[in-house]
């Protein structure tokens, strides 16, 4: 823990969990989608559903989807700005069982692609993604993270991790999930070093890989 976790972050109020963390959830969804959404459906759960409105949680998530940081003073105007950008958005509530009280399910679409992100905001502006496209997972994006969605078939884990190792990158955590046998698989790889663009290129070239997202802390991959 740094002294700047105590004196900081600089953020738009009123709540680190319900506002700053909510912006981070929107940003994470934007990154997983690969850019600005054309439409978004935001479903709030637990304390987010009960007190989100007064904390500006819906505005904060939408601001994050538009690429704003938690200290952006335009966050309170995100509904109006999204309208100007032509982003269609709607809000609702959902009961996410077993999730942290501060959670949301965000569905976003862009250029024929869609993602569904389940995320929680436990405090201090930090977040944790607990589901992606319906598959359970767990990552925060606080360390370099590679997210690969692919066809479930033999050899994929080996080829993907091989491409990571080829760049001298050490993996600290590897998660693999799939929906059905031969269906869609999700790999989440947390690393000790920054993940360069060429790793994404190498993995994207493998047959049966649908999508690759790089999360390098401090870098906005718009």
């Amino acid at each position: 823990m740094s002294i700047f976790d105590i004196l900081g972050p600089v953020m738009v109020g009123p709540s680190s969990s319900h506002t700053a963390g909510a912006v981070r959830m929107g940003q994470m969804t934007r990154r997983l989608l690969g850019g600005e959404p054309e439409s978004a459906e935001i479903l709030l759960s637990g304390s987010f559903a009960l007190t989100g409105e007064g904390h500006g949680t819906p505005r904060a998530i939408l601001a994050g989807l538009m690429g704003m940081d938690p200290d952006d003073e335009r966050i309170p105007q995100s509904f109006e700005l999204a309208g100007e950008h032509g982003i269609k958005f709607s809000f609702g509530t959902v009961n996410l069982r077993d999730a942290h009280p501060n959670s949301a399910l965000i569905r976003a679409k862009r250029e024929g692609r869609d993602v569904e992100v389940g995320a929680s905001s436990p405090g201090g502006g930090r977040i944790r993604v607990f589901s992606l496209d319906g598959l359970p997972t767990s990552f925060s994006g606080e360390v370099p993270t590679l997210i690969v969605r692919c066809e479930d078939r033999p050899g994929h884990v080996s080829r993907v991790t091989g491409a990571v190792a080829a760049q001298g990158i050490n993996m600290s955590k590897l998660q693999v999930e799939r929906d059905t046998r031969g269906g869609t698989a999700l790999m989440v790889i947390e690393c000790d070093q920054r993940i360069p663009y060429k790793v994404k290129v190498a993995i994207s070239a493998i047959e049966g890989i649908y999508n690759v997202t790089r999360l390098n802390p401090g870098e906005e991959s718009k």
Binding site: I6, L7, M11, G13, S15, T19, R59
Partner: peptide, 21 residues
């Protein structure tokens, strides 16, 4: 009040207590 009104603040140590320091 700035915090409650969604203005930019420095959490110290939290957003709710940002006015003391």
């Amino acid at each position: 009040e700035c915090n409650a009104c969604m203005k930019r603040i420095v959490a110290a140590p939290t957003a709710g207590a940002c006015g003391v320091l």
